[in-house]
Simulated scan of single mutants.
Amino acid sequence: MKNTFMVLVLSILFVSCKQEIKPADIAKLNGYWEIEKVVFDKGEEKAYGMNENFDYFQIKGNKGTRTKVMAQLNGTFLTTDTFEDVSVRFSDKGTFLDYKTDYAKWSEELISISDGKFVVKNDQNKEYHYKKAGPVNLMKDGEETK
């Protein structure tokens, strides 16, 4: 009986701690993001130090794109014509980012989002923790980059 009660309390606590993501929150995805860490389904973590590659999200409403970009020493980002179409889907089970290319389709659940961080979970229960990225300028002795 005690175990059942404890499981019930922990379940309620877990469900109540999940962030409710609203349509207005989706605009926070716009910009450059880098992976901070990956949490695997058994709880192990892989931390990422300095990243060369970033994800650039450009979403308007519930549709947009995600492009892989590479930071340059002068504060700009190098990009290719390769991108993924992104659709945001709200359901009673959560908020999902549905990706589509000419070759594949997949979804990730958007777990949480703020101005500086967001977390998604894929179908293999891997959580990707992103942090907002700004330009890196190593060439102009401290001048600001736009």
Rank of each mutant, 00 (worst) to 15 (best):
A104Y: 01
Y99R: 05
Y48D: 01
S114N: 15
Y56M: 14
R89S: 15
G75R: 09
G61P: 12
S107I: 02
D98W: 01
K63V: 12
Y48H: 02
V86Q: 10
R89Y: 14
R66Q: 09
D85Y: 11
F40E: 00
D98V: 13
K37P: 09
I35M: 13
T76I: 07
T101I: 01
T82Q: 08
W106H: 01
T101G: 08
Y99W: 02
F118Q: 03
V38D: 00
I59C: 11
K100Y: 05
Y48C: 01
D41Q: 06
R66K: 13
K93T: 04
G94K: 03
A47P: 08
D102A: 07
N62T: 10
A71W: 03
S112V: 07
S91R: 04
R66F: 01
N62F: 07
D102M: 05
I113A: 12
T65N: 12
D115G: 14
D102I: 04
K105L: 02
F54G: 11
S114D: 15
V39P: 09
E36V: 05
G116I: 09
W106P: 01
Q58I: 06
N51S: 12
V86Y: 08
K117P: 03
T80R: 08
F54P: 10
E45T: 01
K68L: 09
I111P: 11
Y99K: 04
E109I: 05
D55M: 06
N74H: 13
T79V: 04
E108D: 03
L97Y: 01
V39I: 06
R89P: 02
T95Q: 02
F77P: 08
Y32A: 10
R89G: 08
M50T: 14
G116H: 11
F83S: 07
N74A: 14
D55R: 07
L78Q: 14
A71P: 12
Y103G: 04
A47Y: 12
D41G: 05
Q72P: 04
I35A: 09
S87K: 15
Y103A: 02
D41W: 00
M50Y: 04
W106N: 01
V86C: 10
F96P: 03
A47R: 12
K100C: 00
F40D: 02
T82F: 07
F40W: 05
V88N: 14
A47W: 11
D85H: 13
E52K: 11
G49K: 01
V86K: 09
N51L: 03
E84H: 06
G75E: 12
Y56A: 14
G49W: 01
Y56E: 14
T67E: 08
R66W: 00
V119E: 08
M70V: 04
S112F: 04
L110K: 05
N62Q: 11
